[in-house]
Amino acid sequence: MSTQFTAAVITPETITPAQRLSVGHLLAERYRRSWPQEPPLTAATEAENLFAGPQSEWCVNWAIFDGEQALAWAQLTGSQEHNTHWAALYLLTQPAAEDAGHGEALRAALWQVARAEAQARGVSVLGAWGVESYPGFLQFLRGAGFRQTLSNSTVRLELAAVPEKLLTDWTARPTADPYLLHRWTRVPDEYLERMADLQAVINDMPKGDSELGELVYTPQHIREREEQVALDGETRFLVAVEDTRSGKLVAYSETYWGPDRAALVYQGATAVRRESRRLGLGRWVKAAMLLWLREAAPGAASIKTNVAEENDAMNALNVALGFVPYATVSEWEVRLTE
């Protein structure tokens, strides 16, 4: 294997089927190394969805190959419309190449082209995520000038361990309750605008020192996300609470589950509008979600989620349910200079 590595842009038109599958194997093996306690990813599925993404975002992929074998992969992606100064960087090396001592050189080659692409697009800040089980990437981030902006605890809940009485208590509502619970796998058209408005509440959550800016959600964003989830072979379970006095949606919780990795459910966002807090709505949507998963996600055994260590309210809710921390995911950013 040569130690002079050259990164090249890959597209559906320029990559061979064997190379594409090799990138899928790289992504699956890197995930297995980083998260050995979780169901593995399927290389063929990762390869098939390699270039999938919402129309509202731009995306560039690179890879370094030794023949047909992928040694490393990177992706740069950002919004076409909002926070265009910011882009996300994903950069992974094949574990065998990393073990052979080529990780640093592979990352350097990909970083050179990704940084140049970002600057050419007028991006001034790049964001990335790191996990302690992939120390080579954390070392790269520090060396490239990234600074840590937020630390998240990765926590897991064993579904069978949740007390039945807790679920009963958290889903009990008073007589003549003005709040109505919805369960959706696809947001109805008549609720799209209201759901997009509710999702913006996520901006109340801790962001650390991030320069990303306010997250913007639109009906288009919701539909694009639903399409991407379907492409991944998964179902998005969404529980939302409506205040029937105003028609406004005031709380929600979402999870993602697929039969190919049935044992694991990923918990996405849970949020309650500021003016509707301390009414038990957060507990209600969390407990209602667990009850729904029992019915609709056969084989589901545990739920995984990431929560900012400084998010006291959500951490307290998760501890009460029985979530246990088992890893740390850190968020990083670097400001690009000419």
Rank of each mutant, 00 (worst) to 15 (best):
D243T: 06
D243Q: 08
D243V: 05
T244W: 04
R245V: 15
S246N: 08
S246R: 11
K248C: 03
L249A: 10
L249P: 09
V250M: 02
V250W: 02
A251N: 12
A251Q: 11
A251S: 15
Y252Q: 13
S253F: 07
S253K: 13
E254T: 15
E254K: 12
E254C: 01
T255K: 07
W257F: 13
W257P: 01
G258E: 00
G258D: 08
P259E: 14
P259F: 13
P259V: 13
D260L: 06
D260P: 08
D260H: 15
R261I: 06
R261V: 02
A262H: 12
A262E: 10
A262I: 05
A263W: 01
A263V: 08
L264Q: 07
L264D: 00
L264W: 01
V265Y: 08
V265H: 07
V265M: 08
Y266L: 06
Y266T: 15
Q267F: 01
A269D: 15
A269M: 12
A269S: 11
A269T: 04
T270N: 14
A271P: 07
A271E: 11
V272I: 02
V272M: 03
V272S: 08
R274S: 05
E275A: 14
E275G: 08
S276D: 03
R277L: 00
R277S: 03
R278W: 09
R278V: 04
R278L: 03
L279M: 14
L279R: 15
G280T: 13
G280E: 06
L281Q: 11
L281S: 05
L281D: 14
G282D: 01
G282A: 01
W284V: 02
V285A: 09
K286D: 12
K286Q: 15
